[in-house]
Design a protein around this nucleic acid. Structure first.
Ligand SMILES: [Zn+2]
Ligand SMILES: [Zn+2]
Ligand SMILES: [Zn+2]
Ligand SMILES: [Zn+2]
Lengths: 164, 164
DNA sequence: AAATGAAATGTTATCACATAACGTTTTTGC
DNA sequence: GCAAAAACGTTATGTGATAACATTTCATTT
């Protein structure tokens, strides 16, 4: 039986782990990626990305705002946060999870992929997968309805390994 | 080659058709279903359902509100609309599409299913599918990550047959 | 028919999420 | 240094959703 392409961060997101390593790795990757792309990971953008990587749970814009205020000791306004989020989304360093109105760091920012999230109803952590075969199955199903796919968003709800 | 279970309303939603039949059928089915379940499809609930079935495009709560006001000739307040939506969601007569903050009528309210939408970027119409095999593929992918699925929401974006 | 409790609705207020518009500062390429 | 572009600050507003409580309507029992 052949293994199929499934990349996932579920072992980190949905287990006890040294999360500081997740964050450090994500930030290092983000810096390198922004250098390559000649875009600027400014201090406020990096601060937002770092806060998003505080956990594997999606975080809302106003929660980020409060935490930025606490961190920087002065008032922050919504456009500041949303502009940073807009940049991070454009660089695919984070994703927005529509059902949660919240944002989460992408573990595979350099791999083109569609949204595929595993949302644990108990602990709240969200893991992300890149599953080529599933993407193909989705495209095939759409094709049978005469529909050509440009993108998709799949949010799977349930219980992670730890919480079952 | 065997056919697999794929139920879809794409032929109606994504083509020219006699939409009055869609609406009439949906309302008739809703009435019967509510009778069976001993729940009340009150006038305001039915009015919201009828407005939702004005088209195959998802419609926001405040748009419904305005159209209700126009129809009934007096002021309507948000909780009125949201309570009707809450009822219709509970009876699975409509779905909420998270990426749109909007609602759409369910063509298969009696068939248990997960959310699977085909959203056309050009015309805005949304078709719904029930695709057992795809549901299984999703559950299998999740299982490989040690995740047990209770529900999922899949929003496929692209171009419908008409708009390609 | 009257009493009663449950369900539905009306009403006020507020919360949560997101962006438009415009002015100022910082950065970058020349 | 200068000009253009990018990023950021600030004010205001738009959009989606719900909490809390009063009132009305409905179904059931007596
Ligand atoms: Zn990702
Ligand atoms: Zn969990
Ligand atoms: Zn449905
Ligand atoms: Zn279309």
């Amino acid at each position: 039986m052949r293994t199929t392409a499934l990349i996932s961060n579920t072992r980190a997101a949905h287990r006890d782990h040294d999360h500081e390593r997740c964050r450090t790795a994500a930030l290092a990757q983000a810096r390198g990626l922004c250098l390559d792309r000649r875009v600027r990971l400014t201090p406020s953008r990096e601060a937002v990305l770092r806060l998003i990587w505080d956990s594997h749970c999606p975080v809302g814009a106003y929660s980020l705002l409060e935490r930025l205020e606490a961190e920087q000791g002065h008032r922050i306004l919504p456009p500041t946060v949303y502009r940073a989020l807009e940049f991070l989304l454009a660089q695919r360093l984070i994703h927005r999870i529509p059902s949660r109105n919240a944002f989460i760091g992408c573990p595979f920012p350099e791999v083109p992929h569609h949204n595929l999230f595993l949302l644990c109803r108990h602990c709240g952590a969200v893991a992300e997968c890149c599953a080529g075969p599933l993407d193909q199955a989705i495209a095939a199903t759409a094709a049978r309805a005469g529909f050509s796919v440009t993108d998709h968003n799949l949010e799977i709800e349930g219980l992670c390994r730890q919480c079952q």
